[in-house]
Structures are given as C-alpha cells and as structure tokens.
C-alpha cells in the first residue's frame, strides 16, 4: 500500500469525526510518513488503515461517553414529599367523621378481649377449685383419722391401725393434690402474665 492509498483510506474512514479530530489524526500520519526513511516501510509498519481508524473512532466514542462524567455532579434535589398536604387533611377528616364507628369497633374489641379473659379465668378456677377442695378435704380427713386412731388405740387396736392407714392414705392424697393445685396456680399465673404482656405490647404498638 502506498502512502497516498493509506491516507485516502484513513481519511474516508474518519469522515464521520469532527473536522478537528480528522485533521489531527491525518496530520499525525502524514508526519509519520515524512519522518520515515521509506514510505513503503512506514505503511507496512502502520498496518491496515481500517484498523487504525477503528482505534481512533473507538477512542473518540469512549471520550464522548466519558465526558458526561466530567461534568460536576448536579446538586442533589430535595426528596419529594411522599404525600401532599391534602392527603393528610383527608386522612384527618376521615378519622373525625368515622370516629363513632371506630370507637364502636374499639369498644367491641375491648369487650371481646375482656370476655375472653373472663372465660379463661372461669375455666381455670373451675379446674383449680376441685383440686384445692380435694386437697383440703383429704388433709382434714388425715387429721381426723389420726385423731380417732389415737383415741381408739387402747380400746380397739385393729380399728385404730385401719383408721391410721386410711388417715395416712388421705394425707398422701391431700399432699399430692396440694402440690398439683400449686402447679395449676403457677401455670395459670404464667398464662395470665403472657396474656397481659401481649395485650400491653399491642397497646404499646397502637400508641
């Protein structure tokens, strides 16, 4: 490829570039040929004009896309309010006009809650009380039997032993029942504690 052919090919491929860029590039390669001892050798070294043009075009495209980054960043716009003031006016009006309904709803919810608590309490009492009564009765029987057995000891020994046995059995049952009642009370306490705490949390979340 001769110098003329090389330069013509390069010129035609750079024709889309701004005139300034074209001139600078063509000038550089003209000078390159001027400096070289042999123009054929220079053309051989430089290779294909298409390849050179592609590099120059690529570099220009990169700079054009990179240029917007050099522009100082725009001052950040203040964040847009999410809702217009009218939205909040509307919400407030709705709250006021719907208050009878909302209060009724809240009252119903509170009533339900109290009712549920009462049911639970009643159930618990209904379960605990028999065991408590059983425990008290058994312990009372234990005391009574031992008292009677002590009285009968000299008079009718086998009866006294029988009474004492019954008394001890009742006593054991009474103690067991008492322990179970204690556990029931403890579990109930835990249950109510959780219930009140969760209620408190819900109220806290509402507030």
């Amino acid at each position: 490829m001769t110098r003329t052919e090389f330069m013509a090919a390069l010129r035609s491929r750079l024709s889309h570039l701004p005139a300034e860029e074209q001139d600078a590039a063509l000038r550089y390669y003209e000078e390159y040929f001027d400096e070289a001892d042999s123009e054929e050798e220079a053309a051989r070294q430089l290779g294909s004009p298409a390849d050179i043009a592609a590099r120059i075009l690529g570099e220009n495209a990169q700079q054009q896309t990179a240029q917007p980054q050099m522009v100082p960043p725009q001052p950040a716009q203040p964040p847009k309010p999410k809702h217009s003031p009218w939205f909040w006016v509307g919400i407030t009006a709705l709250c006021i006009f719907a208050s009878p309904f909302l209060l009724g709803l809240a009252g119903a919810a509170l009533g339900l809650l109290i009712g549920a608590a009462a049911v639970v309490l009643a159930l618990v009492v209904a379960v605990i009380c028999p065991f408590l009564m059983l425990s008290v009765t058994m312990l009372a029987t234990f005391v009574l039997c031992l008292y009677l057995a002590a009285g009968a000891l000299g008079v009718f020994t086998p009866g006294a032993v029988l009474l004492a046995g019954i008394g001890l059995l009742c006593g054991a049952l009474g103690v067991l029942s008492g322990i179970f009642t204690g556990y029931l009370c403890y579990w109930t306490g835990l249950l109510f504690g959780k219930l009140f705490r969760s209620c408190g949390r819900r109220k806290g979340a509402k507030a």
Binding site: Y28, Q45, R55
Partner: peptide, 27 residues
C-alpha cells in the same frame, strides 16, 4: 520529542504496535 520518535522508541522498547500510539497521544 515527536510522534515518529516516540512510536519507534516504544515499538523497539516494549513492542508497542505503531498503529496504537496516535490514539494514546491524542487522549
């Protein structure tokens, strides 16, 4: 120095291709 010299020097020194220097100089 001038373009041809830089190109020759770098081609001899690090095997840079003659065709790659102009875009670098321009940038």
């Amino acid at each position: 120095t001038y373009g041809y010299r830089i190109t020759q020097e770098l081609a001899a020194g690090i095997g840079a291709s003659e065709s790659s220097l102009y875009p670098v100089l321009r940038r």
